[in-house]
């Protein structure tokens, strides 16, 4: 009962004896510190669905990585066409100032937990467009980026390696995803 009132502060109801109330965030806190979290992370790492969202010339390689030749399905990495179904967003090319709001909107549509892979020089630093008047060069200050995959463009194998590194990060709980708090209206 000491903990119980936490989430129900405003509602003054008489509880029957021997009944305690908990809150969603208390449950989550409990899961976070228990072996259950490891099982959750294992599931997350093995279902890294990525959004097919080719942006620059790197997009060609991004499409390649989803096809049978590289068979990413064996790692649970499956291309999806909607941000609402995806866990991973790859920034695969140059982002112009005009495009940035749209990219942010796509990112906002993804459900947590979610991760970002930076693919190619353009996304990491602006690449060939470093001195351009319209390219956003510091995307890592805007998005929580987990993996940087350099190359122009990186080969699909490199992309696959990036995914595997991300899986390692998730298992080690070193990733930058924000685990949503149900109390904040998260999922």
């Amino acid at each position: 009962m000491e903990e119980g009132g936490l989430g129900m502060g405003e509602i003054e109801t008489e509880l029957p004896p021997n009944v305690s109330v908990t809150s969603a965030s208390a449950i989550q806190e409990f899961i976070k510190n228990s072996p259950l979290q490891k099982i959750l992370n294992w599931g997350r790492k093995n279902s890294l669905w990525f959004m097919t969202h080719p942006m620059g010339c790197c997009g060609i390689e991004q499409i390649c990585v989803g096809v049978a030749h590289y068979d990413t399905d064996r790692f649970g990495i499956i291309p999806r066409c909607s941000p609402r179904q995806a866990d991973v967003m790859m920034i695969s090319g140059y982002v112009s100032k005009k495009y940035l709001p749209a990219l942010q909107r796509v990112w906002d549509q993804m459900l947590e937990p979610r991760w970002i892979l930076m693919m190619g020089e353009c996304a990491i630093s602006g690449g060939p467009w470093w001195e351009s008047y319209s390219t956003v060069t510091h995307l890592d200050e805007i998005f929580p980026v987990d993996i940087y995959i350099p190359g122009c463009p990186p080969r699909p194998e490199a992309l696959l390696q990036g995914f595997i590194e991300l899986q390692k990060k998730i298992v080690a709980e070193q990733d930058r995803t924000v685990i949503p708090n149900p109390a904040d209206g998260g999922v």
């Binding site: 100032k97 470093w130 351009s132 008047y133 390219t135 510091h138």
Partner: peptide
């Protein structure tokens, strides 16, 4: 134009 390099 003096906007280079663009440190957004």
């Amino acid at each position: 134009y003096a906007g280079y390099p663009d440190l957004t």
